[in-house]
């Protein structure tokens, strides 16, 4: 039990190391100069001496390896740097933004997993029937749909045409986060979360369906049917159990995809979450924030995968250790 855990941790550290190195290297290779990007149109008013001072203060004049080691040391000590776009410590920006994104991510993830699993079980139970065919068609189409286009369609239909949901943001304009009531928040969350959860449904549905077919064609199902069980009984008693572990793994493995989707959905709905902060940081060359977000999401995805592994051991009776 300990050995696989240690190996997993080492692997996680190695992956994070590679991600840190790659992200930093990419930032260094960028032709966009962070000092110029920071100054923006005011660059004409700044003398070369002042510019050099800024570069020195940020350490941008040192060789890349030294900068990397310095940055890595700061990261390990928990000092993530200063975000120039938001004019606040990076850790604070990530903290508040992630808390704003968390309800969105969590509800979308839960929705996608539950709906996807249910559809997959239903389709797999009635192989070849019209329900199955329609669910498959739906899943295939959804898998090919651009996320942001789905969000645009939702915005057009529900916010602009029907006026059921707000057009943008996490709350009405001019109201701070703390003053929002729960109902307002949920109202603003509804459409983004729905769009994002629709995204994840397709993959889980198709995967679950394949597992269901595997079982429904097996001798287990044949035996149960011969004993007089109905197809629905077999599906829920044997099929769903057979299919739930792979679905769980897939759900955790899709966390990265979910975060990518949240970047797009938050962009369309102007939802002030971590995804939008990422886009802003990239567009306005906020290198410390971008690097920190890259590492944070890598950690997020890796922890998700590790959790899936742990849950697998917890849920699957075959993997449980027998104590003497």
């Amino acid at each position: 039990m300990i050995a696989p855990l240690t190996r997993r941790l080492l692997r996680l550290v190695a992956v994070l190391g590679v991600v840190a190195l790659a992200a930093f290297g990419l930032m260094q290779a960028s032709p966009i100069d962070p000092v110029d990007a920071y100054l923006g149109p005011q660059v004409a008013q700044v003398s070369p001496e002042q510019r050099a001072l800024i570069a020195e203060r940020w350490g941008a004049d040192q060789p890349a390896t030294q900068q990397f080691l310095h940055w890595l040391g700061n990261m390990l000590r928990g000092e993530l740097g200063w975000s120039r776009v938001y004019n606040a410590p990076v850790s604070e920006v990530i903290g508040t933004r992630f808390m704003a994104s968390l309800p969105l991510l969590a509800s979308a993830w839960l929705g996608a997993t539950l709906i996807g699993f249910a559809l997959g079980v239903i389709a797999g139970t009635r192989e070849g029937g019209w329900v199955d065919r329609w669910i498959c068609r739906y899943a295939y189409t959804l898998a090919s749909t651009p996320t942001f286009w789905l969000a645009i369609l939702g915005l057009l239909l529900f916010s602009v045409t029907l006026g059921w949901t707000p057009v943008c943001c996490a709350g009405p304009a001019g109201v701070t986060r703390d003053e929002l009531s729960l109902a307002t928040r949920l109202h603003h969350l509804l459409l983004p979360a729905l769009t994002l959860s629709l995204l994840g449904v397709a993959q889980i549905t198709l995967h679950t369906r394949a597992r269901m077919l595997e079982l429904m064609r097996s001798e287990v199902a044949l035996h149960a049917l011969a004993q007089g069980a109905s197809r629905r009984d077999v599906a829920w008693r044997h099929g769903a159990r057979h299919a739930c572990l792979p679905a769980l793994t897939l759900a955790f493995a899709s966390l990265g995809e979910l975060f990518g989707g949240s970047m797009l959905v938050e962009q369309v709905f102007s939802y002030p979450g971590l995804g939008r902060a990422t886009v802003e940081a990239g567009l306005r060359s906020d290198v410390p924030l971008l690097l920190a977000i890259a590492l944070f999401t890598a950690l997020f995805v890796s922890v998700g995968n590790a959790l899936a592994d742990g849950l697998y051991r917890l849920v699957d009776p075959r993997l449980r250790q027998v104590h003497p």
């Binding site: 590679v18 991600v19 790659a22 990419l26 990265g256 995809e257 990518g260 990422t278 999401t297």
Partner: peptide, 24 residues
């Protein structure tokens, strides 16, 4: 294997953004 894990360990869109950013 480590490379594959590292690329899969980062959301696709973020990696895409970083690379596109680096190449201008």
């Amino acid at each position: 294997g480590l490379l594959v894990d590292s690329v899969l360990g980062l959301p696709h869109l973020i990696l895409l953004m970083l690379i596109a950013f680096a190449l201008g």
